[in-house]
Write a protein that binds this DNA or RNA. Structure first.
Length: 111
DNA sequence: GGAGTGACTCTGT
DNA sequence: AACAGAGCCACTC
């Protein structure tokens, strides 16, 4: 059966995040119809560790802060990955967050 | 089956 | 405007 778990959907959306772009947990959660489960999104990303295809480093909180960087293998691996994509990150916080912000609700909006 | 946890977000003061 | 507290839902023990 198709695992339509919430956690699975998060992975799909995360994979849809374009290069050099970032989004927030709430944006993904809301896109999935679980706006109140923003925490679950981040938690689902934790499981995404089994799926390297999921750019969890492109997912940050509403403030553009790399809250989940502590969960990465390296200490500042998440920041390095973002910077590697052209994202300006200082002190675990994205600078041009508004510019590189990618909202699935808008980008993946259905017609 | 109940209680606890969590990479968040919003609202109120 | 900044800080504090509650809410939220899905998953694990």
């Amino acid at each position: 059966m198709a695992e339509e778990n919430f956690f699975k959907k998060v992975h799909e959306v995360a994979k849809l995040i374009p290069y050099g772009k970032v989004t927030s947990y709430g944006a993904i959660a809301r896109y999935l119809g679980a706006a109140g489960s923003a925490r679950m999104v981040g938690w689902a990303m934790n499981k995404s560790g089994k799926d390297p295809d999921i750019p969890a480093h492109r997912v940050v909180n509403r403030k553009g802060l790399l809250t989940g960087k502590h969960h990465f293998k390296g200490t500042n691996l998440m920041q390095q990955l973002l910077e590697s994509e052209g994202v300006r990150v200082i002190d675990n916080q994205i600078q041009d967050m508004e510019t590189i912000y990618w909202d699935p609700t808008i980008a993946l909006q259905k017609d």
